[in-house]
């Protein structure tokens, strides 16, 4: 009996290093920065790869894929600028920077100045305006 007890104790001692490979998990709530990527028709940029870098660093802070809604969530560990690079296989993607504090409060993001419909009207206005100037030039030079 004593021999059996010693044998069991020995086996337990041998098993101890194996616990290092036993994956555990803990759940907690935290504030995250959530970035949503979508096309101009509001279709989400789903399941595409992304990388997040701290300002000036070459090793990514986080890599992954967007979720089904085209979202990226990350928890900054410090205040500063964060570069987000998202790339799909067919060449769509974004490379932009946002500024946040360590509590994931976003201070600024370098987003485009106009939203979708505004862009179309502004763009058409700029094009027609440029052609208007060009027509004045053509008229002046015509015999």
């Amino acid at each position: 009996m004593k021999t059996l007890g010693l044998l069991l104790a020995g086996l337990l001692c041998l098993a101890h290093p194996a616990t290092a490979h036993d994956l555990q998990y803990a759940v907690s709530g935290a504030n995250a920065v959530v970035v949503k990527l979508f096309f101009v028709d509001n279709a989400p940029f789903s399941f595409e790869g992304y990388e997040i870098y701290r300002a000036g660093e070459k090793l990514p802070y986080q890599v992954g894929r967007t979720d089904s809604q085209g979202r990226i969530a990350f928890l900054p560990d410090r205040a500063g600028n964060w570069r987000i690079k998202a790339i799909s296989e067919d060449g769509h993607g974004l490379d932009f920077t946002l500024k946040t504090d360590a509590a994931a409060q976003v201070a600024a993001a370098d987003k485009p100045a106009y939203e979708r419909y505004g862009r179309i009207f502004v763009g058409i206005g700029v094009i027609l305006g440029l052609f208007g100037f060009l027509s004045l030039y053509v008229k002046r030079n015509s015999p």
Partner: peptide, 27 residues
Amino acid sequence: VARDLDETTLPWLASLTAASFALSFVA
């Protein structure tokens, strides 16, 4: 473009350029 464009072709080109811009938003 400066050599070839005239007052008749310019409005066409302007309209089509604007249309090309707008089409790029139709995904």
